[in-house]
């Protein structure tokens, strides 16, 4: 776990300012997608070692949801981006 996370909006902050939701890779399926797709999205998570993408919220700062790409073995953080920007949304 990193000690410090560099929020793209607020700068370098201690990990205590963030809360972690989990895997950021699953994409919410369309409403009528298959049972399997929905079951995967809601219930099934891989637990890989190495490079992962997670949703972190900067709860004590800008309150933005971020995508943190990091290595859960070496603890290296590769990138921190805004979750909305990652989805190409407006802000």
């Amino acid at each position: 776990m990193a000690s410090l996370i560099s929020c793209p909006h607020c700068g370098v902050r201690p990990k205590e300012e963030f809360s972690i939701r989990g895997d950021a890779t699953p994409v919410r399926p369309a409403p009528m997608a298959s049972d399997e797709a929905w079951n995967d999205y809601v219930h099934v998570r891989a637990n890989p070692r190495g490079r992962i993408r997670e949703h972190w919220q900067h709860v004590a700062g800008c309150r933005r949801w971020l995508v943190v790409e990091r290595d859960n073995f070496t603890h290296e953080v590769f990138s921190v981006t805004d979750a909305a920007a990652a989805r190409g949304g407006a802000r």
């Binding site: 950021a24 919220q57 709860v59 933005r64 802000r91």
Partner: peptide, 16 residues
């Protein structure tokens, strides 16, 4: 509040 922020930012950022 966090749940709503997640929905607005990560699920449906296209909603104004």
């Amino acid at each position: 509040l966090s749940h709503m922020e997640f929905a607005a930012q990560a699920l449906w950022p296209e909603l104004r």
